[in-house]
Every structure is written in structure tokens, then in C-alpha cells.
Design a protein around this nucleic acid. Structure first.
Length: 840
RNA sequence: GGGCGCGUGGCGGAACUGGCAGACGCAGGGGACUUAAAAUCCCCCGGCUUCGGUCGUGUGGGUUCGAGUCCCACCGUGCCCACCA
């Protein structure tokens, strides 16, 4: 950037006032605040608490400007709440387990722990230059044993509550990262959320958390002030569907019966079933395939296995499948229908089996057309009849029931579905059921750098949890890496070999580690007592601080962290460990800062570092600039023109500086005069209070700043036109208000000026100025005069003039008379205090 | 394919509940100060215009005295989900 303003070199303002030197005043005040303990939220503070949380970052080594954006916004809010009289706790920590450290260890031979901790310290130093009210005494680093000991403890708690289980299941596998992934970590296009590699499915024995048990409660959002869009993302992710489970029965070649349930949301179409579909991986395929069909079926299953998920899930692919040779009976009408396998039936949703109703389901329709299977109508439109042989597509959700005995004539809708379900239940063919898209949370990772799973495998006793008093299971710090698809911990005999806690015999440890989302699912419970060695958390302190009042972080965590943390909290609540069910009362997402339209990432070399900007212009300037970019929740694109905008907020700060010092020169001998301009100054002051206070409350920092800019502009205008106004008490109070309102955004410059003005204490300890509507009221108001909705005139009139008079003035105005041309207006609309619209 | 957003000057963006479109800022133009430059301060800054006006918030329609804002359709764009039975 071509820096046109170099604060360090600048001598500004008239006279011999000191120039604005952010580097000097910022480090000075940061030190003072730290020495005074201003940023530490004490547990013994009579003020009401306010827990202001940001999503803690991964310590990659450098904070980029996007992190700053997030943290500055949160800090502005925290400072503002402190000025509202709250004891604000604003902690900071690091989500320090995860792949980058492990990759660095493999690549450069450094120890993951050392590498991570040096990044933590570096990031910590960067964070301090921001001048935020981060509570340095409450730092949490998840890869330290005093933290992960309790992550292990939580695992045991969930295990003992029956919420953790081990199962063999087809799981997502990233061949690049050599580990399994949670369902949530696989992107829609079938690639790894971390590295972008195409993922595959593998059958592996893994640890799962029973998050599905909480599906319905996760849909409640009791008392939460969250963005609707985030709730919707979670609701869609959980994907609740109401329907029925219906049991079909097939016989294999040996005459043995097999009941295969299907889940359907349309049990009302049960009479339209003309075929039955199984997922290729369905275990009963093996049993039910006939000898003649075996070769073809095996070939298809094999092909489906080898396909990547991208290929398999591509929606525009033509339907494919194979008849397995046997038939299954529809319990409702006793009709046998052929069993096919197809890759559009997923083993992981519902029961892995689907009843084929081609007349009323588009996928089944396409399947039937492709393979010449019969189509039976069980609904017909009310106004005409559809011929199944010529229909171009499935008839979905319209018309009335046909071909279904006593149900014929019923309209399509939930009531009809209910009647079918009662009938099915009454006859014992099945039952009402709710199905979810949400899967249990897979937490095993075949990686080294994570929290050890505190489990032991004993040849005698099987799976045995490590007793609580033996925690933590320590992660060895010195590890050889031979990426093999299995955890590197497997190669460390001292780690693997242990004794069974039950029988004392030789046993081996679980060598997989936990998903890092496990660490972030409870970190907010640790901040209230981060150094407690006796417990994960102290119930007293939890009661004092939780739940989180304000949580600020990126929307990309909607279906991962934010869902897991809620599940965790609910589970702990049910164990009696917490007395609330939702961890985060109010949630705000900052928008993303893009770099020339792309996501900022260190690996792609597109990350913008805040450091140089801070060195050149000061933290206050960067803070103000970031918050002025646009609406906080929208974010911004960082391109060649972006940094130019810093000039604007910087100029503003210089104006504030000059105004502050100028006011300081007058401060001891301010007077009251009876100039009307004093009223003008007070009006500006109070209008600004109203605006800025509501903007900050709503995270609209850009308009808060423009409101403050307008205040300064307006004051300068009045000050330039009125001799003596700058020495009045009104002026002094307005300057004070300006500093207090600006202080959450720019904490250092305002603190310096506050002291220059001779005030005691800190600007940050001042209460938010109180808005006085009487002082903000205009004496003269502007009335817009429209003719037929078009602006023709504006009139200035004393506030309080009654409506009739205003209308009379408006009608008498020359512009209106011309339009009227002697005629009478058809109608006159008067909006009090705002406008008159004359309809001709 | 489904869900949720967004579309306003040269640029970032304002506009509360339908009521002066373009606040605030950047860039640009002009002026003051200066030996000069930077900085600072003041003025102008959507298009067209016969200077009366007139057109203008992605496009087309609608509701209304009045629409950037509400409704319908379409176009573009972003995010999330996606053969979910």
C-alpha cells in the first residue's frame, strides 16, 4: 500500500500539541490495563456476569486478518457490555490438536507438541497487540495434559452413560490424511473437508457417540437467540422425517424366512409397490440371491463398492440395478414383488431397503421405466385420469387415493397418511417411525496428534475403560511417523502395552485418538476455572458463568462444532452434571474475509497478516477500519482497493485526536452560555448516542462508526461557525460522549484522550451515555411534500405544529399549486412529522 | 433437484416498521494555506437535461396515495444440503 499517512512522522493540529502516535500510546495503555487487571473477570464481582465467547482458533502460527475481524467484533461487543455494567468474561484459548502439527512433525521432524506450543505463544503475542479485553488468566490449550485429561474424562462419562459405543461400520476414509472422517467432515462433493482429497468408504471398527439419541431435542432451540439460517442448517442436517416402518417378508432358497423392514414417508402408497430395492451392501443380498443371478449381482455389488462417492451419488446418473432372482411379499396385500439391488438405496439411511412405488416417486419411476417394471396408480388427479403407460413422470403429492379399498377417495395429505399408519399398526404389518438424516458421531481418528481414547482391550475382559484415577492417558511426545493408515501410536510399545484395569493381566491400549471436535465440545466449560486440577469444571463456577451469553464465530461450524457442543451439553445435563441444556444463548456469525474472492488460508499463501498494518497505523486504526468495511455478518473481499479504505478511518481518528486535545486545553474552565448552538451540540450528542448504542448492540459496527463520523463532522461544522462554542460545557460533554461511544471500537486513543482531558479512571469504566429524547428532539422538522407520490417540495416547520396547519402550508406551496392548477386535491395523506402527499 | 441469502453510483456500503434513494467513507474534480510539496481545511461529485424538469435500486408484471423495501414470475450470484425412500 502506498502509505500516505505516516502517523509516526506526523505533527498534527495547530499549536504545539503532541502528534498522534499510536505505537506509543497503545503499548502504554495495554500495559496499564494488564497491570490493573482490568481485563480479568473476577469470580467475586458484584456486577451481573456476561460471558462473551469467541470460537477459539487453531494455532497455525499466524492470525490472519479474518481472525482479527472475528475477534475485534467480539471485543467491541464485550467492551460495550462492560460499559453497560456487566462483569464481562472474555477468555481465549487454542484448539491445538489436529493434523497440521502432525504433518509438520512428519515433514520437518519437529515434535508436534513443541511446534504447536511455539505457535500458541506466537499467536498469543499477536493477539495482545489488538488491545482486546482477553482474560489472560483464563487461557486454555487443548493439547496440554491438564486439559485433555478432562477430554478423556468426558469420554468416560459418555461411555458410562451408554452414549459411546464401538461398532464396525462403513465409514468415510480420507486416503490423503490416512484417517477416518466424521460424516460432517465430508463435503457435498465427496471430498475431505480438511485436504480436499476424494474420500472412500471403508468398513472399520470405530468409536461412535450416540448423538442421534438427541436428534429431537437438538431441534428444539429452547430460548436461543440464534440466526434463523444457522438453525435451518442444523434442522436440515438432522433431517427429521416422519413415516412408517413396514415389514416385508422374503424366503431364501432353504425356505428360511427373512423379515426386511423398509422406512417410508409414504405408507399411503403401499398398494402401489411393484418392486423392492436393497442397497448393494445389504447383508441379506447374499442370502436371497438365486444361483442364476449370482454372477450378475456380485459384479454389480463389486462395481458399487469400487465407485467413489462422487460417482455413486451423482444425481443425474442413469438408474442402474440388478434383479437378484427372488421375491418378497407385501404384507398389506400378500403380493409378491421382485427384489432388486440398486446404488440409489443407501445402507446408511433408513433400513437400507426401499419399497418401490414407481407411480408416485420420481426415482422409482425412472427405475421402473428403465427396467420395464409395472407401474400401479394409487393416486389419481381429481380432474382427469393418468395412464401409467404414458405418464411422463411420477405423480407426487396430488389427487385422491385409488386402488386401495376402503381408503379410495381420500385426498392426498398428512391426515390420509395417518389413517394408513393406524391401519398398518392395527394389522401388525409395521409401525409409525421417525427417521433422521443425522448419523451417530464418529470420533475415532487413526492419527497421533489428538486426545487418547482412554480404553483398554483385554483378552480376558474385552473392552475396559481406564479408571478415572488413572487419567490422563498421556500422549507420548516423541513419535516415529510411518503413515500407514493406522495410528502411529501402534508402533510405540510403551504406549500400547499396558495392564488390564480389571484383571491386571497384559492388555493393549486403544491407539486411535479422538476427533478434535471433542476438545471444542466442552472448552467453554473450562474457562470458568481453567486451572482446576481436581475436576473438569467446578459446578459453582459453572452456575456463576454459564451459559455463554454471546458467542461469536464463523457460520461454517453450523453442523459440526455447534451441533456437537449442544449435544455434549444436553448429555451432561442428563447426567446431572449441568443444570442447563443449551450452552450458547446468543449466537452471531461474522462474515468471511475473502482474499480476492477466495477463502483465506495459510496453505494457499493468500492469508493477509494484520501485523504490518498494526505496526504502520496502530491497532485502533486497524480495528476501526475492519469494523467499517461493511456489515459484520457479511464480511468482505480483500483486494487491491481494500486497504485504501483505511485512509478514511485513519483520518477520522486524527480528527478525534485533534478535537480531544483541543478540548483538553479548555477543560478546567468551561462555561455555560445561552447560545442556541449549545442546544445544537446537545442534539447531535444525543442523536448519536441513540444511534451508536443500538448499532453496537446489533453488531452493526459499520454504521456505528459512520454515526460517530457524522457527530465529529457536525460538531466541527457548528464549532467553525460559532465563536466560543468550543469553550462551553455542552461541547466538553459532547467530546466526552464521543470518546465513551468510540472506546469499544478504538480503546487506546480514547483512553489517552480521556486522561488528557483530566478525567479520572478509565474511559472503559464509564457507563454507556444515557440517551435523553428531550435533548435529541429537533426544533424544526422537515416535511416532505409529494404530489401523487412524487417529491415536489420540502418545507421546514417548527416541531409541534399541528397536522392541519402543516397540510395547509403544504397545499399553499407554489410547487403544489402549479400541479393542482386550480383543481381540488382528491385526497391528502399526512404522515405525522414526515410527509404530506397530495393526490390529484 | 431442494433449502436459505444476496443483487443499490467508478468502489466499500447507508436507508428503522413501505414515506426525501445514495448516509458515512474511498477514489476523482475544484479551491484555500505553502517558495513548493505532503498533510490539513472548504466546495462539487448517479444519468440525461432546453436547467422547468426527467429517468434511476438485476428484468418483467402486480398491490399501494406512495415500493430499494411487500406479492408473483424470471435472470444472475453466493452458501448449505442433495438418489434421504
Amino acid at each position: 500500500m502506498d502509505t500516505q499517512i505516516r502517523p509516526q512522522e506526523k505533527e498534527n493540529g495547530a499549536g504545539n500539541r503532541p502528534g498522534y502516535n499510536p505505537a506509543e500510546i497503545e503499548s502504554k495503555w495495554q500495559q496499564v490495563w494488564e497491570d490493573n487487571g482490568d481485563n480479568h473477570a473476577s469470580d467475586d464481582d458484584p456486577r451481573p456476569k456476561f460471558y462473551n465467547l469467541v470460537m477459539f482458533p487453531y494455532p497455525s502460527g499466524d492470525l490472519h486478518i479474518g481472525h482479527w475481524y472475528n475477534f475485534v467484533g467480539a471485543d467491541v461487543y464485550g467492551r460495550y457490555m462492560r460499559q453497560n455494567g456487566y462483569n464481562v468474561m472474555q477468555p481465549f484459548g487454542f484448539d491445538a490438536f489436529g493434523l497440521p502439527a502432525e504433518n509438520a512433525a512428519i515433514k520437518r521432524g519437529v515434535q508436534a507438541y513443541k511446534w504447536t506450543m511455539s505457535n500458541v505463544e506466537r499467536t498469543w503475542g499477536q493477539l495482545k497487540t489488538m488491545g482486546g479485553i482477553w482474560d489472560l488468566e483464563r487461557r486454555v490449550v487443548t493439547c496440554q495434559p491438564d486439559y485433555y485429561k478432562w477430554t478423556e474424562w468426558f469420554f468416560l462419562k459418555l461411555y458410562h452413560a451408554g452414549l459411546a459405543y464401538r461398532a464396525k461400520a462403513p465409514v468415510w476414509w480420507c486416503p490423503n490424511d490416512q484417517t477416518v472422517l466424521a460424516n460432517e467432515q465430508v463435503l457435498a462433493n465427496g471430498t475431505c473437508e480438511r485436504c480436499g482429497a476424494v474420500v472412500i468408504k471403508r468398513d472399520l471398527e470405530q468409536w461412535f457417540f450416540r448423538i442421534t439419541k438427541y436428534a429431537d431435542r437438538l431441534l428444539e432451540y429452547k430460548g436461543l437467540d440464534w440466526p434463523e439460517s444457522t438453525k435451518l442448517k442444523q434442522i436440515n442436517w438432522i433431517g427429521r422425517s416422519e413415516g412408517a416402518r413396514i415389514n416385508f417378508v422374503a424366503q431364501d432358497a432353504d425356505g428360511q424366512s427373512h423379515t426386511i423392514p423398509v422406512f417410508t414417508t409414504r405408507p399411503d402408497t403401499i398398494n402401489g409397490v411393484t418392486f423392492f430395492l436393497l442397497a448393494p451392501e445389504h447383508p441379506l443380498v447374499e442370502k436371497l440371491v438365486t444361483p442364476e443371478q449370482r454372477a450378475e449381482v456380485e459384479a454389480y455389488v463389486d462395481k458399487a463398492r469400487r465407485e467413489t462417492e462422487i460417482e455413486r451419488q451423482s444425481t443425474d446418473k442413469e438408474k442402474s440395478g440388478v434383479f437378484i432372482g427372488s421375491y418378497i411379499t407385501n404384507p398389506v396385500n400378500g403380493q409378491p414383488v421382485p427384489i432388486w439391488i440398486t446404488d440409489y438405496v443407501l445402507m446408511s439411511y433408513g433400513t437400507g431397503a426401499v419399497m418401490g412405488v414407481p407411480a408416485h416417486d420420481q426415482r422409482d419411476f425412472e427405475f421402473a421405466r428403465k427396467f420395464g417394471l409395472p407401474i400401479v396408480m394409487v393416486y389419481q388427479p381429481d380432474d382427469h385420469e393418468v395412464d401409467p403407460h404414458s405418464m411422463p413422470e411420477a405423480l407426487v403429492h396430488q389427487g385422491h387415493v385409488v386402488n386401495s379399498g376402503q381408503f379410495d377417495g381420500l385426498p392426498d395429505g398428512p391426515e390420509t397418511i395417518k389413517q394408513f399408519i393406524s391401519w398398518i399398526e392395527h394389522n401388525g404389518w409395521g409401525n409409525a417411525e421417525v427417521s433422521y438424516r443425522l448419523r451417530d458421531w464418529l470420533i475415532s481418528r487413526q492419527r497421533y496428534w489428538g486426545t487418547p481414547i482412554p480404553m483398554v482391550y483385554c483378552p480376558q475382559d474385552g473392552i475396559v475403560p481406564v479408571p478415572e484415577d488413572q487419567l490422563p492417558v498421556l500422549l507420548p511426545t516423541d513419535v516415529e511417523f510411518k503413515p500407514s493408515g493406522e495410528s502411529p501410536l501402534k508402533d510405540i510399545p510403551e504406549f500400547v502395552n499396558t495392564t488390564c484395569p480389571k484383571c491386571g493381566g497384559p492388555a493393549r491400549r486403544e491407539t486411535d485418538t479422538m476427533d478434535t471436535f471433542m476438545c471444542s465440545s466442552w472448552y467453554f466449560l473450562r474457562y470458568p476455572n481453567p486451572h482446576d486440577e481436581q475436576a473438569a469444571f467446578d459446578p459453582e463456577k459453572i452456575r456463576q458463568w454459564m451459559p455463554v451469553d454471546q458467542y461469536t464465530g464463523g457460520p461454517e461450524h453450523a453442523t459440526m462444532h455447534l451441533l456437537y457442543a449442544r449435544f455434549f451439553t444436553m448429555a451432561l445435563h442428563d447426567m446431572g452434571l449441568l443444570d442447563f441444556e443449551e450452552p450458547f444463548t446468543r449466537l452471531v456469525h461474522q462474515g468471511m474475509i475473502l482474499s480476492e474472492g477466495r477463502k483465506m488460508s495459510k496453505s494457499k499463501g493468500k492469508a493477509i497478516a494484520p501485523d504490518t498494518l498494526v505496526q504502520e497505523h496502530g491497532a485502533d486504526a486497524v480495528r476501526a477500519f475492519l469494523m467499517f468495511l461493511g456489515p459484520f455478518e457479511r464480511g468482505a473481499d480483500w483486494n487491491a482497493n481494500t486497504e485504501q479504505l483505511l485512509v478514511g478511518t485513519n483520518r477520522f481518528l486524527y480528527r478525534v485526536w485533534t478535537m480531544g486535545l483541543e478540548a483538553a486545553e479548555q477543560s478546567p474552565n468551561r462555561v455555560d452560555t445561552d447560545q442556541s448552538t449549545e442546544t445544537d451540540i446537545r442534539r447531535v450528542q444525543h442523536k448519536t448516542i441513540k444511534r451508536v448504542v443500538s448499532d453496537i448492540r446489533n453488531f452493526q459496527f459499520n454504521t456505528a462508526l459512520s454515526g460517530l463520523m457524522e457527530m465529529v463532522n457536525e460538531m466541527q461544522r457548528i464549532g467553525g461557525n460559532t465563536a466560543g462554542i468550543r469553550t462551553t460545557k455542552a461541547w466538553g460533554e459532547a467530546v466526552d460522549t464521543l470518546l465513551v461511544l468510540l472506546s469499544p471500537l478504538c480503546p487506546h486513543i480514547t483512553e489517552e484522550l480521556w486522561h488528557q482531558l483530566g478525567h479520572g479512571g478509565s474511559v472503559h469504566a464509564q457507563h454507556v451515555p444515557v440517551f435523553d429524547p428531550a435533548l435529541a428532539a429537533d426544533e424544526v422538522i422537515t416535511i416532505v411534500v409529494q404530489v401523487n407520490g412524487k417529491l415536489r417540495e420540502t418545507i421546514q416547520i417548527a416541531a409541534g405544529t399541528n397536522g392541519d396547519e402543516i397540510q395547509a402550508v403544504a397545499l399553499a406551496s407554489p410547487k403544489v399549486s402549479v400541479q393542482l392548477n386550480g383543481a381540488k386535491p382528491k385526497k391528502v395523506i399526512y404522515v405525522p412529522g414526515k410527509l404530506v402527499n397530495v393526490v390529484i
